[in-house]
Each structure stands twice: as C-alpha cells, then as structure tokens.
Amino acid sequence: MTSQHIVSSFDRDLEALQAMIMKMGGQVEMATTNAIKALETRDLELSQQVRRDDKIIDGLDEDIKSETARVLALRAPTAGDLRTVLSVMTISSHLERCGDYAKNIAKRTTVLVEMTTISGTVPALRRMARMVERMLADALDAYIQRDADKADDVRDRDLEVDQMYNTLFRSLLTHMMEDPRNITACMHLHFIAKNIERMGDHATSIAEQTIYLVTGELPDEDRPKGDMTAYGAPDGDAK
C-alpha cells in the first residue's frame, strides 16, 4: 500500500512510528556489535557503555508503545494500517529483548575479563553474532521494503544459527569435562551463546511480522528447528 491517505497527518504518524523502529534497530545492532567486540578485546569500558546504552533502547520501546496507543485511539486504523501499527508494537518488543541480551553479554564480559580464555570459543561467538546481526538488519530492511521474500530468507537462516549454537554447546561441554576450572568461564560463554541464539529467534519473529504485514497472515510454524540441545547432550559428549 503505497498510495497516500486523504488525511496526510495519518501518513506522518505511520512514518514516524516506522522511523522509530529503524532507529531502535540501529541501536540494537550497535549494542550487539559492541558487546561482542568488548568480549573479544576484553574492553571493560566498552562493555560498560553497552550496559548504559540499553536505557536508550528501553526508552525507544516505551516511546513506540505510547505512540502506537495514541495512533490506535485517535486514528482507529484498519486493514494494512492496522497491521502496520500492530507489527510496530510487536517488533518493538522483540528489539527490546535483543537489547537486553546484548546488555547481558556485556555484563558477563565484566566477569570473563578476569579469567583465562577458552580457546576457539570467542571467534565462534563472533561469527554467530555477525550472522545474527545480519539477520536483524535484513529483517528490518525487509520490513521497511515490505519484502516478504526477503523476510522468508531471514527465517531460513535461523537454522544455521541454531547449528552454530549446537556446535558451541558441544565444545563448551568438552572444555568443562577436560578441566573443571573452566566451568565458570564456560557457563558464562554458554549463556552468551544462548543469548545470541535467542536474538536469532527474535530476528526470525521480526521477519514473520513482515510476512504478516504484507500478506495479512502469520506464516505456519513449519520452520526447521536446529536447536537440539534441550534434548540432552548431543552426540554422547556427556554420559
């Protein structure tokens, strides 16, 4: 729906809402990048900044919620407009959660900088985070461009993130079994991996909102699930 409303201030309201979502998306991407960078470079100052900046994301979420409430009350949107407003609300919640995960990564980093490195895990976390950042960026691009195909592609990529998480889970188990002194660091690294994996799920949900916005229907839950760690230790690593 590209044509304009007869009441042009309605168009401005909807544009403002979507601009807020894009701004929030930018903040979340930056928080994720910085959180991982701080972990990699053991930069305590940068991790503190990520924790502080989460307030900006939370503030944007609150602004979006009150603005959507205002648009719903005053404009009584219908059809595509209604779906726009509802998707803005949902996406805002997903982004807010992503911000919390980045903040949590930063918090764990402050503990991890005191410990010895676990070889190979931080680069793997960085690759996983890169992947999720691209998913988030593409999900938001697809949203703004109303591109359901692109959104579908983002959904498919979540499988890879899940597989990377599985691999990391397995290698962290191995490290913990090799030397129990690694357990504290490994637990923190595992939570970081889990946080990134969850961010991938939120990016997927944002992509699904785009599909809802374009087609009027949420896609079926037939997406292949790659996270099998909930069913126990994969491949008999731990008995």
């Binding site: 729906m1 409303h5 007869i6 009441v7 219908t78 059809a79 595509g80 779906r83 229907e217």
Partner: peptide
C-alpha cells in the same frame, strides 16, 4: 474486511486513501 481485505479498492476505501 477490516483486517485483511482482498481487494485493493476495499483497502483504499476503509483506510481512507486516495484512489
């Protein structure tokens, strides 16, 4: 009709758009 109309003319009308 009010959440997901199938015809673009219906959508334009109920959302208050031109055309």
């Amino acid at each position: 009709i009010f959440t997901n109309p199938q015809d673009h003319r219906t959508e334009s009308y109920i959302t208050g758009r031109i055309g």
